[in-house]
Design a protein around this nucleic acid. Sequence first.
DNA 1: CTCCTCTCGAACAACCTGTTCAGTTATGTA
DNA 2: TACATAACTGAACAGGTTGTTCGAGAGGAG
Lengths: 190, 190
Amino acid sequence: MPGTLDRRVRRTRQAIQQALVELVLEKGYEAVTVTDLIDRADVGRSTFYAHFDGKQAVLFANLSEIAFLHPAASADGPLFAFSLAMFEHVAEQRRLVRALLGRRSGRAVMAHGEQLLQDLIRDELLARGARASTSLELVVTCVVGAFMALLSRWVDEEITATPAELDAVFRAAVGPGVQAMLAQACVVRP
Amino acid sequence: MPGTLDRRVRRTRQAIQQALVELVLEKGYEAVTVTDLIDRADVGRSTFYAHFDGKQAVLFANLSEIAFLHPAASADGPLFAFSLAMFEHVAEQRRLVRALLGRRSGRAVMAHGEQLLQDLIRDELLARGARASTSLELVVTCVVGAFMALLSRWVDEEITATPAELDAVFRAAVGPGVQAMLAQACVVRP
DNA sequence: CTCCTCTCGAACAACCTGTTCAGTTATGTA
DNA sequence: TACATAACTGAACAGGTTGTTCGAGAGGAG
């Protein structure tokens, strides 16, 4: 009995979450209605609202199940080592990620993803000797923006590339600048 | 008679566009309804639909009136010279830009803004000797992402900084990486 | 001043949301 | 297996939104 949950509950939630992914891929997030969702999932209206507050809640439920979006920051190894691994994981589940984070999904999810990445990158820079400041926050924002933009256009298939290529460009683009700033920050430190 | 338009038409459109800005700032784009809009603008429902297809059309109409979002690419001067000017213009009209491009607005507008910037930056890199390729497209995406992220968080007042500071961080973050790639590209060229 | 365009305002069907409730399953367990 | 319970059904509901229609009236252009 996985998750100590009633089998019916598992089945229902699974059906709804699956339906959302399909529908987002077909019509885009905005166009999906709760009615669409319960029709596709073949679930009663009242049942739906017993499990979720609305379609956005389903979206977040799906998002939180993507484990590789929560890696830990590291001070060792190359800068932004998370990048390649993340692109590779995304490649494996491109369909799902596309529905959740792609152009056709909602803005709230995008913001959620950015938040995760923001914390991750800030931690890594702090671990590498940067000191907390407005300036650091700005740099983190740049790096997050660059990565998310790459990810977005990739899953939406506006650009074709391998995870390795994406990783290479990402680090080539922001790496040197960030490295230079880190060097400065280290000089300032004792 | 500016714009060869009936004064009533001018008044109506102006009222509606103004109302959208106010309402987006108050409630966020998603929450604004056409009914809100016509109440605030004090305009008949049928009148509204005589001018716009829906609230998104109003948003785009507003967006297209922001002239400084359409600068020209240049091959002279420092890399990404548009940056400082753009941040300064935005600072002057922060309220408007926030309503249009901020976190509380719609995703479609964001995409529109990204598209403009994408063309601008690609042109600049091409003018500086880069050759068209998938790789260039990836780099452009990174730069656009970094800039838009900075802009977004700034107008939403998640971070406090002067245009000069933003410009400095933006160019420090992506400048070195892009310069390095341009240098490589130039070696390859005749 | 006159004509023509624009606006008004109400009314409309169609859709979506979120809630309720009585009746019907399906589950986990004793 | 039998049963108490939790979950699901399905329909109905009020409240809100959208986009359209129409005749009457007001305002501008010439």
